[in-house]
């Protein structure tokens, strides 16, 4: 039997070649390139991930005006089709580029590389938010060169999401629980959600807030301020 996984027989007369290469090495190289490009300009990039409808765009709509006097911000939007999210961000009067993946379920570093050049960023910028394609699984395996990954989870999705979709929470730097204003209408246990998030990622900061009412937004904004000034 195969000595590695028992999947079949090995004929030892045949040739084995050690490889030892990362499968997604091309994405990793592109991510490093993006990171270097942004580091040279002194820009922090945040990769915002979460389910479709979790409130990622609403979070940006609420966050960006609060920070607009302190930081120069740009946004990259990712969706399968349409520029609806870009239209919403354009109302904030900041540079925004829409990526349409036409079917792909996640952004990759190459798409973001193209978008970064389309935005024509210079060193006057401080923060780039990338809103990934709405998906709680696939974006986890495709780093974009971001400094921080933020996963947005909304109360209607249930307090057990971190346990059910652990891979995306596992490597994230922060968890934003959105739509806090709906919590009283739902069987949502905030402490349970925090506990489950802690189990899969004890190092992630946890922010419970409502983009609609603004409740809880201050701690999130403070974290963004810290992130934007973090050593690069």
């Amino acid at each position: 039997m195969c000595k590695e996984c028992g999947c079949g027989e090995i004929d030892y007369n045949e040739k084995e070649i050690p490889v030892g290469r990362e499968i997604l090495e091309e994405n990793s190289k592109n991510a490093v390139h993006n990171r270097e490009h942004l580091d040279n300009l002194g820009i922090v990039m945040l990769n915002i991930v979460g389910s479709p409808g979790a409130g990622k765009t609403a979070l940006l709509e609420k966050t960006i005006p609060e920070l607009a006097n302190e930081f120069k911000i740009a946004v990259i939007e990712g969706d399968l089709e349409t520029d609806r999210d870009k239209q919403r961000i354009d109302k904030l009067d900041i540079p925004c580029y829409q990526i349409c993946t036409h079917g792909a379920c996640h952004l990759d570093a190459k798409m973001v590389h193209h978008a970064l050049h389309e935005l024509e960023l210079d060193d006057s910028f401080d923060i780039v938010f990338v809103e990934n394609v709405g998906n709680l699984v696939c974006p986890a395996d495709f780093p974009l060169g971001e400094d921080f990954r933020v996963v947005v989870l909304s109360t209607p999705e249930g307090d057990d999401k971190p346990e059910k979709y652990p891979s995306i929470f596992y490597g994230s730097d922060a968890v934003v629980l959105s739509k806090l204003d709906l919590m009283n209408y739902l069987d949502f246990d905030l402490d349970e959600c925090k506990r489950r998030s802690y189990e899969v990622n004890p190092k992630a900061r946890f922010f419970a807030m409502s983009s609609k009412s603004g409740d809880g937004i201050e701690q999130w904004l403070e974290w963004i301020r810290w992130a934007a000034k973090s050593p690069k």
Partner: peptide, 8 residues
């Protein structure tokens, strides 16, 4: 997530 080896 990597390719350990191949057999040819």
């Amino acid at each position: 997530l990597f390719i350990e080896k191949i057999e040819i």
